[in-house]
């Protein structure tokens, strides 16, 4: 096969452009990787402080993974200075938002009742569905709610939670996801507690090991 000069020129020009673009992206990635991870940690930290009861540990440092790889859930435990668990938080996803899925950080107290919820990511309509972020009164209505004794639906569907004027789909999705999150806690409570105990035991062993050296 024979290339004429023009074809070779075209291939080389495109190759060169692609190589330079790739290099530029590689360099940018090098500089932004750590700040991006840091920004994400900080965003999660701000949300965790809002949904967890008072704690003295770093819930992100103490995070546990429950379940197998495909549907693993990261649990962020809150502990006081004596190491007692004062609350748990994890992310639940509502796949049925008005536009795409809604990610919600759900914080529980040790008795299994809700401390607070915060929406961490959504694409809902500004001015309508985004009330799930801005409407503090609505967010506060989740406080102290438990799986049992609460009608987990919006009022339009005969439940306990307000919908917004002109937006029912968004709050309905959030209420549903929080309900599923509470069911997950009911089903996996023992696993979570065991995992926390195990992590604590490992840490104690490690510290004793260090002390012995």
């Amino acid at each position: 096969m024979k290339f004429d000069k023009d074809q070779l020129h075209m291939v080389l020009a495109l190759l060169l452009v692609a190589v330079i673009a790739a290099a530029l992206l590689g360099i940018t990635d090098m500089f932004t990787r750590e700040p991006i991870a840091q920004a994400q940690r900080e965003a999660l930290h701000r949300a965790l402080v809002q949904v967890l009861p008072a704690h003295t540990n770093d819930p992100q440092a103490d995070q546990l993974v429950i379940g197998s790889q495909a549907d693993a859930v990261q649990i962020y435990p809150a502990k006081d200075e004596r190491g007692r668990v004062t609350g748990l938080a994890w992310e639940v996803v509502a796949p049925d938002g008005y536009s795409g899925s809604i990610r919600i950080l759900l914080g529980l107290k040790p008795d299994g009742k809700i401390q607070a919820i915060r929406v961490t990511d959504h694409r809902e309509t500004p001015g309508l569905g985004d009330g799930i972020v801005r409407n503090m009164h609505w967010l506060a209505s989740f406080f102290d709610k438990a799986l049992v004794g609460t009608h987990w639906a919006v009022k339009k569907d005969g439940g306990d939670f307000d919908q917004f004027t002109g937006a029912t789909i968004t709050p309905r999705a959030v209420v549903g996801a929080v309900h599923d999150g509470l069911e997950f806690f009911r089903d996996h409570q023992q696993d979570i507690l065991k995992a926390i105990e195990k992590a604590d035991a490992e840490r104690t062993a490690e510290e004793q090991g260090k002390g012995g050296q």
């Binding site: 673009a21 940018t28 990635d29 500089f31 932004t32 700040p35 920004a39 965003a43």
Partner: peptide, 26 residues
């Protein structure tokens, strides 16, 4: 081949801006 070349250049800069905003204007 100017159009694919320009698009590659533009896409590279867009990705750079995207990553920079993700890092410093989260």
């Amino acid at each position: 081949v100017r159009i694919p070349a320009y698009i590659t250049i533009i896409a590279a800069f867009v990705t750079v801006v995207d990553m920079a905003m993700n890092a410093w204007m989260h």
